[in-house]
């Protein structure tokens, strides 16, 4: 699966906004449209962070309904779990996308990093889940790698699982650490997008050592570990 980052963020914003307004009731839609419109006309840090934070409780009552065409068009998001996205996540990604269109490119990495640092769990997860879709995604690498250090499993899973970003942009050492943490905390490796294409000899060495350590301790070795230990393709 490939994620195709948009040239500019307008198309992405429109797609996401359609999903939000198609699911929310009149009151929530009015709130969303007003917030989105204000963000498009100029960046106000406090208004942005407030709208971003408030999306969950304003949209919690509604579920996104996605057509096959929607899912196809949203492939650019680089996620495999769109059906599990709460509606607030579409709204939050629309807000980010809008702000990126309304601010100078040199500020973008700092804006996204602040969302991560100042967000609660679900705010952090929304940012990470949409990360591959925003223009020039390698700019956000530092935030993405930092997010892998989270001890909140849902936050870690938002970058490590069902997300194309790490396999597309992580350097090898960071990718390997992320994959080993996935194994370590017991998440299935099948959830790591693009794992097959990023296998490497250092990762299989780490996995073999992990298996040996588990065996020595008399503990179970996860059955999916052979996805990274055996038959590593030649580089």
């Amino acid at each position: 699966m490939t994620a195709v980052a948009t040239e500019d963020s307008t198309e992405l914003t429109l797609l996401l906004a359609q999903i939000v307004t198609g699911a929310a009731d009149g009151k929530a839609t009015a709130w969303f449209n007003e917030a989105l419109g204000a963000l498009a006309t100029g960046y106000d840090r406090n208004a942005f962070l407030a709208a971003y934070a408030g999306a969950d409780r304003r949209l919690r009552a509604f579920d996104a309904t996605l057509s096959a065409a929607d899912i196809k068009r949203l492939e650019m998001l680089g996620t495999r779990a769109l059906e599990e996205w709460p509606l607030s996540r579409f709204a939050r990604c629309a807000f980010i996308s809008t702000v990126l269109g309304a601010t100078p490119a040199m500020d973008h990495a700092a804006i996204l990093d602040e969302i991560f640092r100042s967000g609660d769990n679900s705010e952090r997860e929304a940012l990470l889940a949409g990360l591959a879709a925003f223009p020039d995604p390698t700019r956000f690498l530092e935030t993405a790698i930092e997010s892998c250090r989270s001890n909140v499993e849902t936050v870690f899973a938002a970058i490590a699982c069902e997300n194309a970003y790490p396999s597309l942009y992580f350097p090898e050492a960071s990718f390997n650490q992320m994959v080993m943490k996935t194994v370590f905390i017991g998440l299935p490796l099948a959830r790591v997008v693009g794992l097959e294409g990023r296998r490497n000899s250092e990762l299989s060495r780490m996995a073999e050592h992990f298996a040996a350590e588990r065996e020595a301790a008399g503990r179970e070795v996860p059955s999916d570990l052979d996805l990274i230990t055996a038959n590593v393709r030649p580089a």
Binding site: E84, P86, E125, E153, T154, G186, L187, P188, P222
Partner: peptide, 11 residues
């Protein structure tokens, strides 16, 4: 599901 995300507990 917690907060819209599965907390798939490994252990």
């Amino acid at each position: 599901l917690w907060e819209g995300n599965s907390v798939l507990r490994g252990q």
